[in-house]
Amino acid sequence: MTLSAPAFDYEDHLAACARGDRQALRRLYDVEGPRLLGVARRLVKDTALAEDVVHDAFIRIWTRAATFDPARGSGRGWMFSITRHLALDFLRSQERDVELDERNEPALTDTGELDGLLHGARLTQCLDQLEPLRRACLVHAYVDGYSHAEIARKLDSPLGTVKAWVKRSLAALRECMG
């Protein structure tokens, strides 16, 4: 599975943005805005904040379109990474303030959602080789933006153990995926 949908040429539209074509940005927004908002909403857990993130993301997509390099990844993936990292910057910068707040989060045990949605992806096969709980750590860190501390709290495990788990699971994933 890749991030390029066949019918829409993200790279072309990014190149047009780099030339100052605002219509191209509008089309990227129409096609990708809802997905990026979904991603940001799941990370920052608040719709208004998520809209702030997507706003900043589109400004950044516009101002940095000229720096997009197709050799480094797909255009769609690039937009997604910009959005996700803005949301993560926000989450991590808030960490000290909300450390003790219980965010309303799902438990760290269900990974059933993986099965249907990622069928056939290499990533899924490699994630399947991890113990369910360790797999859940990675998935929730990635899609829900959990920090080490949040994972540790959810699992009621020592922080050091969780850090080691994450590190080893990533190494195993790397080994499996190449």
Partner: peptide
């Protein structure tokens, strides 16, 4: 980024408010 990006498909899309694009513009 390329390895983990398939995980983004786990997150459902959400329609932005009508004002978001105006704000971006």
């Amino acid at each position: 980024e390329r390895r983990l990006q398939p995980l983004q498909e786990l997150t459902p899309a959400q329609l932005p408010s009508d004002y978001l694009w105006q704000r971006i513009e």
